[in-house]
């Protein structure tokens, strides 16, 4: 049972980690919580599912299109709901983000209806049974894909010109501008990357739970934020660690304590972290 829950937790945790990366990167560069991150996750899932349902595109194309649309939505959102408010009291963009989140959620509800959509492509996944632990190849694939995306992000931030420029903007915006870095462009790039990762997470979870619906992003979005705080806001490895830990904690909690309160576990952890170690496990720049 323990290992079973561990594996399940790592699978959902990898989705939390991917969304948390978006939160953490955007927070790092703008000091802003993008409340609509969960809706971006939902957008990625919907685009992939709708494309696949037409039966005319293959899985890889649909996946890429889902990620691409999520990225585009993120960039548009930054342009419309955040950029005009830069420099205002921090409450203002925060509330604007909430507004954007509600808007997107209800838009999806109007466009797609409230019902669950199953994932249109059936995958034949083998399951491996070790003792009494059942691991499906799907879980392995999700975990692997998430890890690859995370590794790509880390490489990008560490070794590319634009990656370093994003870090520079997060550390010291004025000095970054003195280097000739266009901060607006880097902010847009950050939204692009963070949103693409959230979109990917959305598609993965749409396959895993075989469900796509307008409010699917609400709880994963909130939980991923808790994960980002758990790991230390603004800290990229921290977001990954926080996401995976949270997924596992939630899964174990649901298994051993009570499944009815599964969704509360993340928030209890969040409140505990804020009480005990507000800077997170790996030190972040938040608070």
């Amino acid at each position: 049972m323990f290992f079973q829950q561990l594996i399940n937790g790592l699978t959902t945790g990898s989705a939390y980690a991917l969304i948390a990366l978006g939160y953490t990167m955007i927070y790092g560069i703008l000091g802003l919580i993008n409340f609509a991150q969960g809706e971006i996750y939902m957008c990625g899932a919907f685009v992939a599912v709708l494309l696949l349902a037409t039966g005319k595109v293959n899985f890889i194309t649909a996946f890429a299109a889902g990620m691409g649309s999520a990225a585009l939505l993120g960039v548009v959102l930054e342009r419309v709901a955040f950029r005009p408010l830069r420099g205002a009291h921090p409450l203002v963009p925060l509330i604007s983000a909430i507004g954007a989140s509600i808007f997107l959620q209800s838009l999806a509800l109007l466009l797609f209806g409230p019902n669950n959509r199953p994932f249109p492509v059936q995958f034949e996944f083998h399951t491996i049974t070790v003792g009494d632990v059942v691991i499906s190849a799907l879980q392995g694939a999700i975990l692997l894909a998430a890890l690859i995306l995370m590794a790509l992000l880390m490489l990008f931030v560490r070794y590319t010109r634009y990656g370093k420029a994003i870090v520079a903007c997060a550390l010291d915006r004025d000095t970054a501008r003195l280097m000739g870095i266009n901060v607006d462009r880097m902010v847009a790039l950050t939204f692009l990357i963070g949103s693409a990762l959230s979109g990917a997470a959305g598609i993965m979870m749409a396959i895993y739970y075989n469900a796509t619906y307008p409010r699917m992003g609400l709880l994963p979005g909130l939980k991923a934020f808790s994960a980002a705080i758990l790991g230390g806001v603004g800290n990229i490895p921290g977001a990954i660690l926080g996401g995976l830990l949270l997924g596992v904690a939630e899964s174990l909690g649901a298994g051993y304590l009570s499944s009815g309160y599964k969704d509360a576990i993340a928030f209890v952890i969040l409140i505990l972290v804020l009480l005990i170690r507000p800077q997170g496990i790996l030190k972040g720049k938040g608070h």
């Binding site: 419309v80 709901a81 408010l85 205002a88 203002v92 963009p93 509330i95 604007s96 909430i98 507004g99 954007a100 989140s101 509600i102 808007f103 997107l104 959620q105 209800s106 838009l107 509800l109 109007l110």
Partner: peptide, 12 residues
């Protein structure tokens, strides 16, 4: 809800 969301962003 759509209107509330749009209202929030637009007002701000």
């Amino acid at each position: 809800d759509l209107a509330y969301g749009a209202l929030l962003v637009a007002l701000l």
